[in-house]
Amino acid sequence: MGNVIDLLKRDVKYVNKPTRKKLYPIICQVGVGGTGSNLAQQLAQMMALFGQEGYYCLADYDEIESKNLRNQLFVESTVGKKKADVLAQRYSAAYNINITSYSEKYVEDVTTLFQLFNIDYERLKGNSSDYCILPVLIGCVDNNYTRQIFHQMFEQVPNILYIDSGNESAIVPSDFPQRPKEEWTEEEWSTYNESGWTGQVVCGLKLNGTTILEPVGTRFPEILSDKDEIKRPSEMSCEELSSSDPQRLLTNRMASMAICTYITELFECGTISNSMTVFHAKKGYMRSESISIE
């Protein structure tokens, strides 16, 4: 049996108050592509369903392209618009909650990331001891440069829940999509069919300056290495950005679902019981690693 971290349990000095604190998450989700667009719908619906107070910001500089319609939650009429703006407006209206968006530029420095969490805490009702005010950073990006920025923030703040999603891309021929699939070799087909199905979600947690659960950059140190060789998203050419390996629809949806298992437990129970989840979309399984604290 693993441990459970209870974020809403009161300190002893507040024993005369109600037993549990109220959760007030300050959620910033960076990336609203294949995984992130699915997550935005699910998370917005959960906030409305559970009557969850909080702040939710979607951040992504990218514009919607026709190719995105294959595995992201956009339609033809939205092509050319900013992904984050479209989803924030859509789900604010659909679920009658306030969702903000940031699409001015890529999140490429920790200062920008901090600004996305800059809200007026004074608008909270009641005494601050009645609330667990928790910054929640959700990474749905496909590059390690941005993950390094996320890691910097994790190291600099006293309290944060950092959930990161990473998916395996499908391996396709170098001349994809110019050469149709009918012309692929047996080896190319085999490689494609066996790739792009897996992924993981890592949950990092820091409370009162102490790291309780290691973030993805610590669990997978290669993310933080070779800093000089990793390009900023803004430095990549249009060809580099558009030639990225494709991701599978079901893989993206399982990644978003894996993230939702953490968010659902947080919203409904105020607890965290897992530190990492791995999944395989083709085999149809999802397995979580329970928290183990000495």
Rank of each mutant, 00 (worst) to 15 (best):
T218L: 15
D120S: 06
I293Q: 08
A40T: 12
I64G: 06
N159S: 10
P173W: 08
G31H: 02
G209N: 03
L241V: 12
M47I: 09
W197Q: 10
R147N: 15
M153W: 09
E239N: 13
V75D: 13
T277A: 00
E155S: 08
R232N: 12
C238R: 00
R232A: 11
Y91S: 14
T185N: 14
T261L: 07
D164L: 07
Q45R: 15
K22P: 04
N98W: 07
W197M: 03
L224Y: 08
G33D: 15
M46P: 04
V172G: 02
D62Q: 07
A84Y: 03
S66I: 13
G199N: 01
V216F: 09
G36H: 08
D62F: 07
T19R: 00
E53Q: 14
K17C: 02
D109W: 07
T19H: 04
A281L: 06
I163K: 03
E222M: 07
Y121N: 04
L113N: 12
G36M: 05
S243M: 12
D164N: 06
F50N: 08
L8K: 06
C28M: 14
A48P: 07
L124W: 04
S290F: 02
N144Y: 14
P180F: 04
Y262P: 04
E182I: 05
R147E: 15
E186H: 11
Y192K: 06
P221W: 12
E155Y: 10
E268W: 00
S129V: 10
E265R: 06
I171D: 05
S195E: 13
R70E: 14
D226C: 13
L224K: 04
L213A: 02
A258I: 09
S290H: 00
T112L: 15
S169M: 06
Y91V: 15
P177Q: 09
R253C: 08
G204D: 12
E183D: 03
N98F: 09
N159P: 03
S165N: 02
N127S: 14
K81T: 11
T211G: 07
I5Q: 07
L7P: 11
M47D: 07
S174M: 10
I99S: 06
L116D: 08
I99H: 09
T264C: 01
I272N: 00
G166R: 13
D60F: 02
T185D: 13
L266I: 07
E183C: 02
L39F: 12
V136T: 01
G80T: 03
V278Q: 07
S66R: 03
V86P: 13
T19W: 05
L134K: 00
D164F: 13
L124V: 13
I99Q: 02
G31S: 00
C238M: 04
